[in-house]
Design a protein around this nucleic acid. Structure first.
Length: 435
RNA sequence: GCUGGAAUCGUGUAGUGGCAAUCACGGAAGACUGUAAAUCUUCUGCCGUAAGGCUUCGUAGGUUCGAGUCCUACUUCCAGCA
């Protein structure tokens, strides 16, 4: 294998120690976090447990550095966190970036990222990375296509499923046919192919290829789909083991993904099934109704092995984060902080607010007074209000910086509060102000 | 001064004798949870919570069953010519 084919993390093992130190010193002077290298390719260690709950703090070791958990993972779907530079991502204290196999396969292609030295190096992040398998696109381009309601968390909403002709994704037992949202071309994803893409991208943690169903699918379909997701998980695991065997210096961890919608028996069944397999960790997925989320996570995590990390896919509202951590979630990822930022909204200790609103026109205070983020220490709400109204992209950048900082700090503070034994006090105080 | 053209919602416009107000912008509010998303939804003459009611197409007349639309005069603006 050529050196250039290896993901970034592997260089460190190959190059000499003095050179490594030289890099470290150089990076230190640039005030950049140095990836903490570990001899163990991947591992998880629990630090503190919160008595009477499933909550815990700990550390996930990856080839690109350690992740203190619970941790909020920022989403960088197409190998970038939208509207932010990697320097900004570091400055908001992000520990991990999660990218997407479907998007990167379409553009620029996983082979190219592999040639570039892996995702982390390619995007100049140089920290740990996760990738999603494309499983989310089974819903967002499939049964949930153009039907926002299929993914809603609003229990009062009328749920619908996109007709087959309207979709850009079609599920078969063998895999999923996608119609590219970029050029309309067709592509077939199997579990094996998703693993090859993710392994090529070179993330530290890959997700098993799964089928994300709509809450409006029937119970019979949820059962059928869960069985398929199990088959795909098994195939993902087999293929990942094969791929890892081909790269002795690069071990990519694989998380099994739990589906089962909001059915207790299906969630417990899949947790039991996953727990028996040799996954490095687990992802809890599904279009989760807000009211049911905490219960569903508990069903899963009471069964999943304690010594492996558990990721909750696509969640970042503060109340959801508290609830999920109490039920034993270690990592989260979510597009919300950057998406709502680009749409003009900011997280504050008193809830989410629309900075584009008339009330901020002449508000010359920071978005959040006392917030230590770059945005709040340098800019006023009125200025961002102006930028947003003027459709200047800097508005999205500044609000993304603030929102990511806000959510990451929240999870960091929760971690500290568990370690300090002040979790409940912190949670009650925070949520009282927030809602 | 002459000739020609124009005048419709906050702005720019659509409306070609038959229920005025289309579209865009601007404005207000809201949504966004493994990114087809720097996007989407609703409202935006007046009164009314609503059902609904009432006004309005520069001004004043005229033709017509019926005028934003055709005619006359005036006002203002634009262009060309002096």
């Amino acid at each position: 294998m050529k050196k250039s084919d290896l993901p970034a993390g592997m260089y460190i093992f190959i190059i000499s120690v003095p050179y490594m130190i030289a890099i470290a010193v150089k990076k230190q002077t640039r005030n950049v976090i140095i990836p903490q290298m570990s001899n163990k390719a991947f591992g998880f260690k629990i630090q503190t447990k919160l008595a009477g709950t499933l909550a815990r703090t700990g550390v996930i070791h990856t080839p690109h550095g350690d992740i203190k958990t619970p941790a909020f993972i920022v989403v960088g779907t197409k190998a970038n966190v939208k509207a932010m530079t990697p320097e900004m991502v570091r400055d908001v204290h992000a520990q991990v970036v999660l990218a997407n196999a479907y998007h990167l396969y379409l553009q620029p292609g996983h082979e190219l990222i592999s040639k570039a030295g892996g995702l982390s190096k390619f995007m100049n992040w140089n920290g740990p990375t996760f990738t999603d398998s494309g499983g989310f696109q089974v819903l967002s381009l499939g049964s949930g296509f153009k039907k926002v309601l299929a993914m809603t968390t609003d229990v009062n909403a009328e749920l619908t499923i996109a007709k087959k002709g309207d979709r850009h994704a079609w599920v078969t037992d063998d895999g999923v046919k996608f119609k590219s949202h970029i050029d309309g071309s067709f592509h077939f994803f199997t579990p094996e192919f998703s693993m090859q893409i993710q392994h090529g991208i070179g993330s530290d943690v890959a997700m098993a290829f799964d089928e994300l169903t709509s809450l409006s699918d029937t119970r019979a379909y949820q059962e059928e789909s869960l069985a398929r997701t199990h088959t795909w998980a098994e195939r993902s695991l087999t293929e990942m083991k094969r791929l890892n065997a081909t790269t002795p210096d690069y071990y990519q961890a694989l998380f099994g993904v739990l589906q089962g919608a909001n059915y207790e028996d299906l969630r417990k069944q899949t947790a039991t099934w996953m727990a028996e397999r040799d996954f490095d960790g687990f992802g809890i997925g599904g279009a989760l109704e807000k009211d049911e989320m905490s219960t569903i996570i508990r069903w899963c995590n009471e069964i999943l092995p304690e010594n492996k990390p558990r990721h909750l896919l696509g969640i970042s509202e503060p109340d959801d984060i508290f609830a999920a951590i109490e039920q034993g979630i270690d990592t989260f990822d979510c597009v919300s902080p950057t998406r709502v930022a680009r749409n003009g909204s900011a997280y504050t200790p008193h809830g989410r607010v629309n900075i584009r609103g008339q009330k901020y026109r002449e508000d010359f205070r920071p978005v959040v007074e006392g917030c230590k983020c770059y945005t709040c220490t340098n800019y006023t709400a009125a200025y961002i209000n102006h930028l947003s109204r003027a459709k200047e992209s800097l508005a999205g950048t500044l609000l993304s910086v603030h929102n990511e900082y806000f959510i990451i700090k929240l999870v960091d503070d929760i971690r500290s509060s568990i370690n300090d034994g002040t979790f409940y006090e912190f949670r009650n105080r925070f949520l009282k102000d927030y809602y």
